[in-house]
Amino acid sequence: MPSPMDIYKLLPKTNCKLCGEQTCMSFAFKLIKKEKKLEDCKPLFEPEFEEQRRKIEEMLKVVEKATETGLIVNEDLCIGCGNCIVVCPVHVYEDPEGAGSGFGIRLEKPILRVENGIVRVIDVSLCRRYKEKTICVACRENCPTSAIAFLEEL
């Protein structure tokens, strides 16, 4: 997952304000939070920045994968241990006999499910961060390989 600094380093760094932000750094922040689009940075589309733009686009692919709650799964790091699924308070509440008791989740549309050995986001609309806008980090906190991240914490 790229940090705002990683992106900033590749921007024109002229603080031209054409994007509507005061500094390139704040533009970098908003890019990651998906509050700005790369196209808003006009100078970056000049030929001299071509290579840097490509690199940023590559970095932003990860950001694109983030769900509406800002939850991002890095599938390469996941080994399918199921910790995140079993600790999720929504799963425990909705599926006490299944995920709440350690078994594979029995909900038709859970938030997360391990498929082919890797965790997949199935339906993020149940996530507490989405519905109640609470700050829940249980899944991320219990993933020792940092396969789960939240956008705003980056």
């Binding site: 080994i79 199921g82 594979g104 499910r113 498929e115 082919n116 050995g117 890797i118």
Partner: peptide, 17 residues
Amino acid sequence: DIEIEGDVIRHACRIGA
């Protein structure tokens, strides 16, 4: 508790899958 549906295997970790 592993479910298999066609080529999708659910709940098994990376080793098992």
